[in-house]
Design a protein around this nucleic acid. Structure first.
Lengths: 208, 208
DNA sequence: TTGTATACATACATACATGTATGTATTCTT
DNA sequence: AAGAATACATACATGTATGTATGTATACAA
């Protein structure tokens, strides 16, 4: 049972991260002690302090496991060849993000923790700074897409790309937050897609 | 200095609530101790325990000071006589809520705390349950407004009142959250109003 | 095969935060 | 005017989280 080869250590590390996810979700980040995480993972605090510097470091590591995929996906989508359809691309991308939230339990859990189970102040700050940076980066890219949409004549004349960007960002943020807080209140795949269609339909040049 | 008449006690109580606001905002709810709040207020923990049962009770009391006004305002708006214009009314109401966020420092601080400085789990639960109840109540009323707008022919034919409600709710939620997290990123009065205009324009029956 | 680094578990020292008990100076009541 | 209640301050007892120091068994390298 106590063999501790290199691979075993990685298993332990993952077990700690999984346990942290469960306990953070159930009790909130600040109220969970490393002792509770250790017990949930079937190890002692010694193991946690071996793999991570402290709770903040453990928290950051937990985020890293799920943070990368979506941004990469977005970039890949943008570079997808063929005729340009930035509006359609954005709508599809946002829909995909919502679907992902419903499909992947790990992804969903981490985002519940990020948005409703921790505080944006104090020790965890480095993790949040990182998140804000990613958000700013995405905002720039989305605004560029809207500018391109306007040049292609996809947008109704009254639509300002910057405002459209802020609105879409806020809408997505709000959907995440409200649905994660009360997932039973509606179906995020169908209703989420409907909300996006409603928004993008309002932006398009052709009335229908 | 130590006169403690009835009115003095209320002054102390308010001072504690003000201090709690400041410290919660600066350090996050879970990381602030009652000792820190007491020091900030210029009293000792004895005073806090006299006025409040514990930290959770203090937190709830802090919310109560700002929670009521907006809901009341909304109801008053809805009952305002004259010709029916539910879409215009909703847009105005949402704009007012955003303006309020910019105008009242107390209001803004409390909402920053609520949305980014505390965890939706554990001890504070009663306060959050209350908040969710208020949200559900508002959702019902807003959906009713959209239904009325549809009957009046204000809505474009493709707009489902329920989806419109969810979208508006998420949008407002997202604006609150994202702006409160980084208030310097845009002006919430002008840009907020523009975002609402963009959304509501997309809903209306007449293209322009 | 023997030393050394790894991967933890155990033990300890310290720092806080909390709740309560008690003290005390006023204020209010009668 | 005297007792009771108010509005706190002070003191204490307890629990709990944290970080580190130390122990230890195994893997691995030479």
């Amino acid at each position: 049972m106590v063999r501790r080869t290199r691979e075993d250590a990685q298993v332990t590390r993952e077990a700690i991260l999984d346990a942290a996810q469960r306990v953070f979700l159930a009790r909130g980040v600040s109220r969970t002690s490393l002792e509770q995480i250790a017990r949930e993972a079937g190890v002692t605090r010694g193991a946690i302090y071996w793999h991570f510097k402290d709770k903040s470091d453990l928290f950051s590591a937990m985020l890293e496991r799920v943070r990368l995929p979506l941004s990469d996906l977005a970039d890949a989508y943008r570079q997808g060849g063929g005729r340009r359809d930035p509006l359609g691309m954005l709508e599809k991308l946002c829909g995909l993000a919502l679907t992902k939230l419903d499909a992947s339990e790990t992804y969903r859990k981490v985002y519940i923790i990020l948005m409703t189970r921790c505080e944006f102040a104090g020790e965890m700050n480095p993790a949040f700074e990182r998140q804000l940076e990613i958000d700013r980066d995405n905002l720039r890219k989305v605004e560029q897409d809207f500018v391109e949409a306007r040049e292609l004549g996809q947008l109704a004349p009254h639509v300002d790309p910057r405002i459209a960007t802020l609105t879409l960002y806020s809408l997505m943020h709000g959907i995440y937050q409200s649905w994660l807080r009360t997932p039973q209140s509606y179906d995020i795949r169908t209703d989420g897609a409907a909300m996006l269609r409603l928004f993008f339909t309002g932006l398009r040049a052709t009335g229908h």
